[in-house]
């Protein structure tokens, strides 16, 4: 484990060198929040009107948290890198190293997530507070518990992205699977709370990764209660184990049939 922590630490140091890029990236978040603010102001005739149990401020806070989460965890470059490693055969360079490729990739990605978390979470919340002038009522323990679910959401998403990337062992280019996965999370779990969907879609979302990666933490942030927290944590732990096993399985199977020509 120490070697992975070392990888994590050195990647953080690298990311700090490029903190300007992360801050610059925050402009994109600002624009998206600005668009959502205008959109929801156009939809809500009265800020106190309830749509699917959410008033305007709650909906915007929900979208803000899911956007923050999405900005932290989205891993287009990460998935692309794994796909390229498999496609080009670069993954072989890691076979004789004293670490697992999966472990190396995950801790590498988590370091970037951590830096983005610091920037997006703090600045993001501040920005939305300035936009709305109010903050959801949460005590310090509840904030810590929400942060725990955000951490688990990041971990699960990283594992699922790793699985999608390693799927290139089977389909050669698994980038298109990432597009569909990311868009499903974005459309069903980021734009608005799942209560806005018809009941049948809600059932599907409740069993999908969207629940553990996006909806769960955001729902807790907007309207915290302990029974929701327990069900979200249990679902997250189940997803964590399943996604980890899937990564191990596809990696072991893929490496066995790896065939690299030249080098």
């Amino acid at each position: 484990m120490r070697k992975y922590l070392y990888i994590f630490k050195s990647e953080i140091m690298t990311n700090i060198q490029y903190i300007g890029n992360v801050l610059f990236g925050f402009i994109g978040f600002f624009v998206m929040m600005f668009i959502f603010l205008n959109l929801w102001q156009a939809i809500y005739d009265d800020p106190n009107e309830l749509i699917a149990g959410y008033n305007m401020n709650q909906t915007i806070w929900y979208v803000a948290i899911t956007e923050v989460l999405w900005s932290i965890i989205s891993g287009r470059k990460y998935t692309k890198k794994i796909v390229e490693d498999v496609k080009t055969g670069n993954i072989t360079y890691n076979l004789n190293k004293p670490y697992s490729y999966i472990g190396y990739s995950i801790f590498n990605h988590l370091a970037g997530c951590f830096i983005r978390f610091l920037v997006y979470f703090i600045l993001g919340l501040l920005l939305v507070f300035i936009f709305l002038g109010s903050f959801p009522s949460l005590d310090i323990v509840q904030i810590l518990l929400v942060l725990l679910t955000i951490f688990l959401a990041t971990l699960i998403n990283t594992l699922l992205l790793t699985f999608i990337g390693l799927f290139s062992f089977i389909v050669e280019d698994s980038n298109p699977f990432y597009w569909v996965y990311s868009k499903l999370i974005l459309v069903l779990g980021v734009m608005f709370p799942i209560e806005f969907f018809p009941p049948i879609v809600q059932t599907f979302i409740n069993y999908s990764p969207i629940y553990v990666v996006s909806y769960g933490p955001a729902r807790l942030f907007v309207n915290f209660n302990y029974s929701d927290f327990i069900s979200i944590i249990i679902a997250q732990l189940i997803y964590l184990i399943i996604s980890f096993l899937l990564c191990l399985l596809i990696y072991k199977k893929g490496v066995k049939k790896l065939n690299v020509n030249g080098g």
Binding site: I43, V171, F177, W179, V180, K183, L184, M191, F192
Partner: peptide
């Protein structure tokens, strides 16, 4: 695959607007 998945990828956003227009 790239072409087909991009079409599916874009189609997902229809869901967003169908839901929003069911409100207003």
């Amino acid at each position: 695959t790239n072409i087909v998945f991009m079409i599916i990828n874009n189609s997902t956003f229809i869901i967003q607007w169908v839901v929003l227009f069911s409100i207003k």
